[in-house]
């Protein structure tokens, strides 16, 4: 968990600031949702920053943004910034969530109902 020797706390603003290069992720309109599924396209190339490389390794099977955040112990906002770069570099692909709507379609609702009934 803790990166010993770095002398800063897991979630400290300093660490987060360095990881994202000072970007907040708030201003860019992100298409990433908490439940967007992310899948790596390639392995991490040599020299990739450790957090990005860790994401690429985690996503050797599809994984949601929320799960990436949990496993990396980084806020979702930070993970979103990193993923935006990885998407632009085509290191990962995003499987978008069902289009947001206040009224999801009937077939989708029925699929979820049937899945839950089988639990």
């Amino acid at each position: 968990m803790s990166e010993s020797g770095q002398g800063w706390e897991e979630g400290s603003p300093e660490r987060l600031y360095v990881i994202t290069g000072g970007r907040s992720g708030g201003s860019e309109t992100s298409t990433l949702d908490l439940v967007t599924l992310v899948r790596a396209r390639t392995g991490p190339p040599p020299g990739m920053p450790p957090e990005q490389a860790a994401i690429v390794r985690l996503c050797s099977s599809p994984l949601s943004v929320a799960e990436i955040s949990a496993y990396l112990n980084l806020p979702v906002s930070v993970v979103t910034v990193l993923l935006t770069d990885l998407l632009a570099e085509k290191r990962v692909e995003a499987r978008s969530p069902i289009p947001p709507a206040n009224l999801p379609d009937v077939a989708l609702i029925e699929a979820v109902m049937h899945g839950l009934e089988k639990l």
Binding site: L34, V35, T36, L37, S61, P62, L63, S64, R95, S96, P97, I98, P104, L108, V112
Partner: peptide, 12 residues
């Protein structure tokens, strides 16, 4: 716990 390759979309 890994999701299958076929996992294409998620809802919450």
């Amino acid at each position: 716990d890994a999701l299958p390759e076929t996992a294409a979309a998620a809802v919450k």
